[in-house]
Amino acid sequence: MAAKGQREDGRGPLDYRAISVNKGFAPNAEGSCLASIGKSKVLAGIKFDVMAPFADRPTEGVVMVNAEFSPMAHPEFRAGPPDAQSIELARVVDRGLRSAKIVDTENMLLMEGKVQGIFIDLYVLDHDGNLIDTAALAAMGALQDSKVPKFEDGKIVRGSNSGNLKLNDAVVCTSFEKIGKNIMVDATDAEEIASSGRLSLSTANGDLICSSQKSGAAGFSKDEYMQMIDWSFEKRKELLSKLG
């Protein structure tokens, strides 16, 4: 069905399902956001902490993204250490945020050997396809929701609030799936099973690509690739409007 360019739910190839963004869902976290696209749901939670900087960037803060595919999200997900799929998702979201310098890591030095760390945990709660876009949206929403705690003498003061986290711009991600010769956005779980390959493109600053990830066996031609870039800029506007 999808191979003929028709979709089970009647959507056009470039239509997203219903998108919702619910910031502040888990208020004990310094920032949180439950994002859903169609029936897929990802909760992002953010915690701040004090940590040692990376050796090659001794004055910069650290942002870490981790993804948990909860066994409640899909009958085939199992509890246990992260597998290749969840690592890929976390790293794709991470590269988008990092490339676009969404968080100003250069202003997170506390004292020599101590910097602010921002831990972004992505909890996949319900999986009906397109987890990367959903997770990227949740991560961005949670960053926008984040209140920076106070830091005193190189220690974090839990529960304190020194104001909103300052962000440069916003990153969103649009994933394209190739089924037969057709390319479509926002695939459901069933469409992903039929798909032979995916390209995820993260966008920032209106018309810049800040990360790409090709996955699955299918190849894309340059023409297809350039077409997807144009579509990702179009879809960016829609996703940003949902982030508010």
Binding site: R95, S99, I209, C210, S211, S212, Q213, K214, F220, Y225
Partner: peptide, 8 residues
């Protein structure tokens, strides 16, 4: 295809 950085 993977990438980082900001590209037009």
């Amino acid at each position: 295809s993977q990438m980082d950085g900001m590209l037009s």
